[in-house]
């Protein structure tokens, strides 16, 4: 049994299909990334899965529970950090954590212990007595995410949780999530920051125009879609005659920033590299540096989404 299972899940607003016949399966104990361009349907999908809005068609089971028939039972077992900021403006950081735990019926002693744990884990101790409306956007976001860990849950939905956070806070949050997943939590995670997804996700789905267009582990996605490899050659001297020397060779670019840089992007990068190296050697041109850049998830994402947009025209 999957932790999240949807079958032809759809949500329409008039003639617009925000989510269009989505079939999704997420296993327990994983961090599942959900990526897509703006307006692709990520937030609508999260709102459907968290039972905030009802679907137009299709079915969904969350933690084995029919989420359409028993939405309250689902909500009792999940945690949700929405994309939109949410906070109690008149309460202090400490008080808002404590009150949120009370709202989830967490026992008083447990609440007190968890407040201390989360203030430390999310670096909120110095601002514990400051009211939420006096905090910066990044601080409020940290409180919002920390708050969700006040209660027990089996599945956590995070809709762009790191927006507004500085790099160290972002990394701290991602590591905290990884730690919690080791204890059995399942995480459904949307982000625009693709190297975050690469860092944390066990499996990734790419959504565009309400449909899932690719779904696999980050490495498998790179194997499937990342045929193009990037190789960079740096020459110490500026060689404006390079284009004449490399006539007949395709799939490369040059720029003359601090010397001459040749960038090869091709599905046959090694073959192109060999040809260029032969020519450079023949012409006694000294190579200062050579590097291969691994395909990133961002490149995969752009490639997959662009293909999806092209095929829909």
């Amino acid at each position: 049994m999957s932790c999240i299972e949807t079958n032809s899940l759809s949500k329409s607003y008039g003639s617009v299909n925000a989510v269009d016949g989505m079939d999704l399966s997420v296993n327990y104990g994983k961090i599942f990334g959900f990526l897509g361009p703006n307006g692709a349907g990520k937030t609508t999908t999260i709102k459907l899965l968290t039972t905030l809005i009802p679907p137009t068609n299709g079915s969904m089971k969350i933690l084995g529970i029919d989420a359409i028939r028993s939405p309250l039972e689902v909500r009792k077992k999940i945690g949700v950090v929405l994309q939109q900021p949410s906070y109690e403006p008149t309460l202090s950081v400490e008080k808002s954590l404590e009150k949120y735990g009370m709202m989830w019926n967490v026992e008083k002693k447990t609440r007190q212990d968890r407040v201390e744990e989360l203030l430390s884990a999310f670096d909120l101790e110095e601002i514990r007595n400051i009211k939420n409306d006096e905090l910066s956007i990044g601080q409020r976001r940290r409180v919002q995410v920390a708050r969700e860990f006040m209660h027990d849950m089996k599945l956590l939905f995070l809709d762009e949780p790191t927006v507004g956070l500085d790099p160290s806070a972002r990394r701290g949050l991602l590591d905290f999530i990884k730690h919690k997943v080791k204890d059995g939590l399942t995480v459904f995670f949307t982000t625009h920051i693709l190297n975050e997804a690469e860092y944390i996700c066990d499996e990734v789905a790419i959504i565009n125009k309400g449909k899932i267009i690719a779904i696999d582990t980050p490495d498998e996605l790179k194997n499937k879609f990342g045929r193009e490899k990037t190789i960079k050659i740096h020459l110490s001297s500026i060689r404006k005659d390079l284009s004449n020397l490399l006539i007949g060779i395709k799939d490369y670019e040059t720029d003359f920033n601090s010397g001459t840089n040749i960038t090869i992007r091709s599905s046959n990068s090694e073959e192109v590299l060999l040809k260029i190296l032969q020519i450079l050697t023949t012409n006694n041109i000294v190579i200062e540096d050579l590097s291969a850049i691994p395909t990133s998830l961002e490149e995969i994402f752009l490639s997959v989404v662009n293909k999806s947009n092209a095929s829909s025209y």
Partner: peptide
Amino acid sequence: WNDRRHGMFEQILVGPFT
């Protein structure tokens, strides 16, 4: 109105409440 403005309306409704 305050809950809608500060995002707590949705936050409560994704919690264990109807």
